[in-house]
Amino acid sequence: MASEQQPSGNHLLELVDIEAGYGRAALVLRGLTVRVPPARVVCLVGPNGAGKSTVLKVASGMLTPRSGRILVGGQEATRYTPRRMLSAGLSHVLQGHSVFKELSVAENVRLGAYTVTSKADIAERVDFVKNLFPVVAERWNSLAGALSGGQQKQVEFARSLMVSPRVVLLDEPSMGLDPRATETVFEQIARMRSAGTAVLLVEQNARRALETADLGCVLDLGRVHISGPATELLADPRLGELYLGNRRAAPHAPTVTD
Protein backbone atom coordinates (compact mmCIF):
# COMPACT_ATOMS: atom_id res chain seq x y z
CA MET A 1 0.00 0.00 0.00
CA ALA A 2 1.27 3.28 -1.26
CA SER A 3 1.39 5.56 1.72
CA GLU A 4 3.33 3.29 4.05
CA GLN A 5 5.70 1.61 1.65
CA GLN A 6 7.95 4.62 1.50
CA PRO A 7 8.51 7.47 3.94
CA SER A 8 6.60 10.57 2.94
CA GLY A 9 9.73 12.58 2.11
CA ASN A 10 10.42 10.35 -0.86
CA HIS A 11 7.26 11.24 -2.72
CA LEU A 12 7.20 13.64 -5.63
CA LEU A 13 3.59 14.57 -5.23
CA GLU A 14 1.47 14.25 -2.12
CA LEU A 15 -2.17 15.13 -1.76
CA VAL A 16 -3.05 14.87 1.91
CA ASP A 17 -6.59 14.89 3.34
CA ILE A 18 -7.90 16.85 0.39
CA GLU A 19 -11.43 18.19 0.46
CA ALA A 20 -12.50 19.88 -2.75
CA GLY A 21 -15.60 20.69 -4.77
CA TYR A 22 -16.92 22.97 -7.46
CA GLY A 23 -18.52 26.25 -6.45
CA ARG A 24 -21.14 25.89 -3.73
CA ALA A 25 -21.99 22.34 -4.72
CA ALA A 26 -21.32 19.42 -2.40
CA LEU A 27 -17.78 18.20 -1.90
CA VAL A 28 -16.40 15.91 -4.58
CA LEU A 29 -13.28 14.89 -2.68
CA ARG A 30 -13.80 14.10 1.00
CA GLY A 31 -10.50 13.67 2.75
CA LEU A 32 -8.57 12.01 -0.03
CA THR A 33 -4.91 11.10 0.26
CA VAL A 34 -2.78 10.07 -2.72
CA ARG A 35 1.00 9.88 -2.92
CA VAL A 36 3.12 9.53 -6.06
CA PRO A 37 6.68 8.19 -5.68
CA PRO A 38 9.41 9.02 -8.21
CA ALA A 39 9.34 7.22 -11.57
CA ARG A 40 6.23 5.25 -10.73
CA VAL A 41 2.89 5.02 -12.43
CA VAL A 42 0.04 5.51 -9.97
CA CYS A 43 -3.38 4.73 -11.34
CA LEU A 44 -6.67 6.05 -10.01
CA VAL A 45 -9.65 3.88 -10.86
CA GLY A 46 -13.24 4.08 -9.81
CA PRO A 47 -16.76 4.63 -11.09
CA ASN A 48 -17.94 7.81 -12.79
CA GLY A 49 -18.34 10.61 -10.30
CA ALA A 50 -15.84 9.16 -7.87
CA GLY A 51 -13.73 12.29 -8.23
CA LYS A 52 -10.86 10.95 -10.29
CA SER A 53 -10.55 13.92 -12.66
CA THR A 54 -11.02 16.28 -9.73
CA VAL A 55 -7.93 14.81 -8.10
CA LEU A 56 -5.91 15.78 -11.17
CA LYS A 57 -7.43 19.27 -11.27
CA VAL A 58 -6.49 19.81 -7.65
CA ALA A 59 -2.99 18.48 -8.27
CA SER A 60 -2.39 20.80 -11.25
CA GLY A 61 -3.70 23.88 -9.45
CA MET A 62 -6.78 24.27 -11.62
CA LEU A 63 -9.00 23.73 -8.60
CA THR A 64 -8.02 25.03 -5.16
CA PRO A 65 -8.87 22.55 -2.40
CA ARG A 66 -11.07 23.70 0.50
CA SER A 67 -8.83 21.93 2.95
CA GLY A 68 -5.88 19.59 2.97
CA ARG A 69 -2.31 20.01 1.77
CA ILE A 70 -0.46 19.54 -1.50
CA LEU A 71 3.26 18.87 -1.41
CA VAL A 72 5.50 18.77 -4.47
CA GLY A 73 8.87 17.23 -3.80
CA GLY A 74 8.22 17.74 -0.09
CA GLN A 75 7.57 21.48 -0.59
CA GLU A 76 4.29 23.13 0.30
CA ALA A 77 2.33 23.85 -2.90
CA THR A 78 -1.25 23.98 -1.69
CA ARG A 79 -2.39 27.27 -3.22
CA TYR A 80 -0.22 27.29 -6.33
CA THR A 81 -1.62 28.63 -9.63
CA PRO A 82 -1.51 26.27 -12.64
CA ARG A 83 1.49 28.16 -13.97
CA ARG A 84 3.42 27.71 -10.73
CA MET A 85 2.50 24.05 -10.58
CA LEU A 86 3.87 23.72 -14.10
CA SER A 87 7.12 25.38 -13.03
CA ALA A 88 7.24 23.12 -9.99
CA GLY A 89 7.20 20.14 -12.36
CA LEU A 90 3.58 19.07 -12.70
CA SER A 91 2.26 18.72 -16.22
CA HIS A 92 -1.42 18.02 -16.86
CA VAL A 93 -2.76 16.31 -19.98
CA LEU A 94 -6.46 17.11 -20.09
CA GLN A 95 -9.28 14.69 -20.83
CA GLY A 96 -10.33 14.40 -24.46
CA HIS A 97 -8.47 15.93 -27.39
CA SER A 98 -6.51 18.94 -26.29
CA VAL A 99 -4.10 19.51 -29.16
CA PHE A 100 -4.38 22.80 -30.99
CA LYS A 101 -5.79 21.46 -34.24
CA GLU A 102 -4.95 24.52 -36.32
CA LEU A 103 -1.31 24.55 -35.29
CA SER A 104 1.41 22.25 -36.53
CA VAL A 105 2.69 19.37 -34.45
CA ALA A 106 5.91 21.35 -33.99
CA GLU A 107 4.05 24.38 -32.66
CA ASN A 108 1.95 22.21 -30.37
CA VAL A 109 4.99 20.55 -28.86
CA ARG A 110 6.84 23.85 -28.46
CA LEU A 111 3.81 25.30 -26.68
CA GLY A 112 4.50 22.80 -23.93
CA ALA A 113 7.79 24.55 -23.24
CA TYR A 114 6.31 27.98 -22.74
CA THR A 115 7.64 28.28 -19.21
CA VAL A 116 11.11 27.18 -20.31
CA THR A 117 13.31 30.11 -21.31
CA SER A 118 16.59 28.54 -22.42
CA LYS A 119 16.67 27.78 -26.14
CA ALA A 120 19.23 25.04 -25.66
CA ASP A 121 16.98 23.32 -23.12
CA ILE A 122 14.05 23.51 -25.51
CA ALA A 123 16.07 22.04 -28.38
CA GLU A 124 17.22 19.24 -26.13
CA ARG A 125 13.66 18.46 -25.02
CA VAL A 126 12.45 18.52 -28.63
CA ASP A 127 15.02 15.86 -29.50
CA PHE A 128 14.01 13.90 -26.42
CA VAL A 129 10.28 13.79 -27.18
CA LYS A 130 10.85 13.17 -30.89
CA ASN A 131 12.89 10.18 -29.88
CA LEU A 132 10.27 8.96 -27.43
CA PHE A 133 7.34 9.46 -29.81
CA PRO A 134 8.27 8.50 -33.38
CA VAL A 135 4.90 9.69 -34.70
CA VAL A 136 5.66 13.19 -33.45
CA ALA A 137 8.96 13.26 -35.31
CA GLU A 138 7.36 11.80 -38.42
CA ARG A 139 4.50 14.30 -38.58
CA TRP A 140 6.48 17.26 -37.23
CA ASN A 141 5.26 19.76 -39.84
CA SER A 142 1.71 18.45 -40.22
CA LEU A 143 -1.29 20.23 -38.83
CA ALA A 144 -2.19 18.54 -35.56
CA GLY A 145 -5.84 18.43 -36.62
CA ALA A 146 -4.92 16.13 -39.52
CA LEU A 147 -3.64 13.43 -37.18
CA SER A 148 -5.69 10.52 -35.90
CA GLY A 149 -6.93 10.51 -32.31
CA GLY A 150 -4.15 8.19 -31.13
CA GLN A 151 -1.49 10.29 -32.82
CA GLN A 152 -2.94 13.47 -31.30
CA LYS A 153 -2.69 11.83 -27.88
CA GLN A 154 0.99 11.24 -28.48
CA VAL A 155 1.43 14.88 -29.44
CA GLU A 156 -0.23 15.80 -26.14
CA PHE A 157 2.13 13.48 -24.27
CA ALA A 158 5.10 15.00 -26.05
CA ARG A 159 3.84 18.48 -25.20
CA SER A 160 3.44 17.57 -21.55
CA LEU A 161 7.02 16.29 -21.37
CA MET A 162 8.54 19.49 -22.77
CA VAL A 163 8.85 21.08 -19.33
CA SER A 164 10.84 18.07 -18.03
CA PRO A 165 8.05 17.41 -15.55
CA ARG A 166 8.58 15.39 -12.42
CA VAL A 167 5.00 14.17 -12.52
CA VAL A 168 2.69 13.93 -15.51
CA LEU A 169 -1.04 13.92 -14.78
CA LEU A 170 -2.95 11.96 -17.42
CA ASP A 171 -6.73 12.18 -17.51
CA GLU A 172 -8.24 9.21 -19.34
CA PRO A 173 -5.63 9.06 -22.09
CA SER A 174 -7.29 6.11 -23.83
CA MET A 175 -10.70 7.79 -24.15
CA GLY A 176 -12.12 7.39 -27.64
CA LEU A 177 -9.18 5.40 -28.98
CA ASP A 178 -9.31 2.09 -30.77
CA PRO A 179 -7.69 -0.95 -29.07
CA ARG A 180 -4.45 -0.60 -31.00
CA ALA A 181 -4.07 3.10 -30.21
CA THR A 182 -4.97 2.35 -26.58
CA GLU A 183 -2.20 -0.20 -26.48
CA THR A 184 0.24 2.39 -27.84
CA VAL A 185 -0.86 4.88 -25.18
CA PHE A 186 -0.07 2.44 -22.38
CA GLU A 187 3.24 1.59 -23.97
CA GLN A 188 4.08 5.29 -24.05
CA ILE A 189 3.17 5.63 -20.39
CA ALA A 190 5.60 2.82 -19.61
CA ARG A 191 8.24 4.62 -21.65
CA MET A 192 7.68 7.86 -19.75
CA ARG A 193 8.27 5.95 -16.56
CA SER A 194 11.45 4.39 -17.84
CA ALA A 195 12.59 7.88 -18.83
CA GLY A 196 12.28 8.82 -15.15
CA THR A 197 8.93 10.60 -15.10
CA ALA A 198 6.28 9.73 -12.55
CA VAL A 199 2.72 9.43 -13.83
CA LEU A 200 -0.58 9.94 -12.04
CA LEU A 201 -3.08 8.26 -14.29
CA VAL A 202 -6.87 8.31 -14.34
CA GLU A 203 -8.41 5.54 -16.42
CA GLN A 204 -11.77 3.96 -17.09
CA ASN A 205 -10.00 1.08 -18.73
CA ALA A 206 -9.08 -0.08 -15.23
CA ARG A 207 -7.68 -3.53 -15.84
CA ARG A 208 -5.43 -2.44 -18.66
CA ALA A 209 -4.28 0.60 -16.69
CA LEU A 210 -3.43 -1.46 -13.61
CA GLU A 211 -1.40 -3.82 -15.77
CA THR A 212 0.85 -0.91 -16.65
CA ALA A 213 0.75 0.88 -13.30
CA ASP A 214 2.96 0.18 -10.29
CA LEU A 215 0.45 1.36 -7.71
CA GLY A 216 -3.28 1.74 -7.80
CA CYS A 217 -5.93 3.58 -5.83
CA VAL A 218 -9.60 2.71 -6.03
CA LEU A 219 -11.72 5.81 -5.52
CA ASP A 220 -15.36 5.98 -4.62
CA LEU A 221 -17.42 8.90 -3.33
CA GLY A 222 -14.38 11.14 -3.01
CA ARG A 223 -12.18 8.85 -0.93
CA VAL A 224 -9.51 6.27 -1.57
CA HIS A 225 -11.04 2.94 -0.63
CA ILE A 226 -8.38 0.50 -1.57
CA SER A 227 -4.81 1.19 -2.53
CA GLY A 228 -1.74 -0.88 -3.02
CA PRO A 229 0.51 -2.45 -5.62
CA ALA A 230 -1.30 -2.70 -8.93
CA THR A 231 -0.79 -6.45 -9.17
CA GLU A 232 -2.50 -6.99 -5.82
CA LEU A 233 -5.41 -4.80 -6.82
CA LEU A 234 -5.86 -6.75 -10.01
CA ALA A 235 -6.23 -9.90 -7.96
CA ASP A 236 -8.52 -8.25 -5.39
CA PRO A 237 -12.14 -9.43 -5.69
CA ARG A 238 -13.47 -6.15 -4.26
CA LEU A 239 -12.24 -4.31 -7.39
CA GLY A 240 -14.68 -6.32 -9.45
CA GLU A 241 -17.47 -5.50 -7.03
CA LEU A 242 -17.01 -1.79 -7.45
CA TYR A 243 -17.30 -2.14 -11.17
CA LEU A 244 -20.03 -4.70 -11.28
CA GLY A 245 -22.45 -2.37 -9.58
CA ASN A 246 -22.56 -3.79 -6.07
CA ARG A 247 -21.55 -0.38 -4.78
CA ARG A 248 -23.07 -0.56 -1.33
CA ALA A 249 -20.61 -3.20 -0.34
CA ALA A 250 -17.57 -1.12 -1.10
CA PRO A 251 -17.70 1.64 1.56
CA HIS A 252 -17.98 -0.96 4.29
CA ALA A 253 -15.17 -3.06 2.99
CA PRO A 254 -11.98 -2.89 5.05
CA THR A 255 -9.68 -0.31 3.47
CA VAL A 256 -5.98 -0.16 3.49
CA THR A 257 -5.35 3.58 3.47
CA ASP A 258 -7.85 4.94 5.95
Partner: peptide, 22 residues
Protein backbone atom coordinates in the same frame (compact mmCIF):
# COMPACT_ATOMS: atom_id res chain seq x y z
CA UNK B 1 7.98 33.36 -33.61
CA UNK B 2 7.26 31.81 -30.23
CA UNK B 3 5.16 34.90 -29.51
CA UNK B 4 3.10 34.09 -32.61
CA UNK B 5 2.61 30.49 -31.58
CA UNK B 6 1.31 31.67 -28.21
CA UNK B 7 -1.08 34.09 -29.93
CA UNK B 8 -2.41 31.41 -32.26
CA UNK B 9 -2.93 29.13 -29.28
CA UNK B 10 -5.05 31.91 -27.76
CA UNK B 11 -7.07 32.05 -30.97
CA UNK B 12 -7.85 28.39 -30.77
CA UNK B 13 -8.43 27.99 -27.05
CA UNK B 14 -7.48 30.74 -24.65
CA UNK B 15 -7.98 28.69 -21.48
CA UNK B 16 -5.89 25.85 -22.78
CA UNK B 17 -3.15 28.28 -23.80
CA UNK B 18 -3.19 29.74 -20.32
CA UNK B 19 -2.95 26.31 -18.72
CA UNK B 20 0.26 25.73 -20.72
CA UNK B 21 1.76 28.86 -19.22
CA UNK B 22 1.21 31.31 -22.10
Amino acid sequence: SRFGTGLKAIREDEDKAQSLGV
